[in-house]
Design a protein around this nucleic acid. Structure first.
Lengths: 147, 147
DNA sequence: ATTGGTGCAAAACTTTTGCAATTCC
DNA sequence: GGAATTGCAAAAGTTTTGCACCAAT
């Protein structure tokens, strides 16, 4: 229940107005500590104020994305999630069998990042990474699948 | 203009009926040599037969996904793309500035794959990988952004 | 006071579904 | 012949947009 204050401050510094709606969206993102859908953010915001409209949530997420305060993650199954940038950096292992999402530490990707930079001149924003596959507990069922 | 015939054969061997619609979807996927949206596949199919319905395209893609002949890729911007599995294996670098999509060779990821298996017991299906970031030509504009 | 932001309703877009008619095996 | 597949139309779900009103600076 702290920490989203600097985010709010950050908004103000970027010439954006500080509205309760925006604060609530930031708070919801901060509380959920990870990937949440627009719908989930909407639900959390509504707990505080049921009059906030979902289009406001979308517009706020759009704004935060432009300001690089939030990133959009596509975890498959057509679900788009959002996450605060700059918190504990991590990535996502998505199990295609059971849908479970594991977090992976960022260091795991340092060497990949270096290679991409050297070979392709590509600066990877790796807070966006989602890796699909098969988790430990689904491993047996998975065995029949290619790769 | 060849090579999708084994795909069709593969369909038959999996107890699936061979319809012109499915053949056209496979052909469209094969021709486009990479990530295409459902809409693009639909357009290609329509060039051959305007009476094919888009719901058939979706149903066929769903089927091919289940058979692991096609994989679904989320390249951001809300666009879902599809790609034949088993062609030249590669991955995608998506530039968040200009939207360009670069292909990356699979070998690049061998060590990452090994690490994930060892540390998390996670079997990565890395034909699904999309890496977001900033391409060489957008690098200058990108410089101001975090990470 | 002025600009920017919000709520609302409606549109736009993508994907899914129920069902009758058709097609493949 | 019989089950699987298709076309259609309609629904469902998500995201965007135009506009009048309201609020933050």
């Amino acid at each position: 229940m702290s920490g989203h204050f600097d985010l709010i401050e950050s908004l103000r510094q970027q010439d954006c107005r500080l509205t309760p709606q925006r604060e609530m969206v930031l708070e919801a993102l901060h509380e959920s500590q990870g990937h949440v859908s627009a719908e989930e953010i909407y639900a959390r915001v509504q707990d505080r104020n049921p009059y906030v409209h979902i289009s406001t949530v979308y517009r706020t997420l759009e704004l935060l994305k432009e300001l690089h305060m939030v990133c959009e993650i596509h975890l498959g199954g057509g679900c788009t999630c959002y996450e605060l940038v700059g918190e504990r950096r991590h990535h996502h292992l998505v199990c295609q069998e059971c849908g479970e999402v594991l977090d992976v530490d960022d260091e795991m990707l340092t060497s990949l990042k270096d290679t991409l930079r050297q070979e392709y001149g590509f600066e990877a924003h790796l807070y966006h990474l989602a890796i699909f596959g098969c988790c430990r507990s689904c491993q047996k069922t998975c065995a029949t699948h290619p790769e």
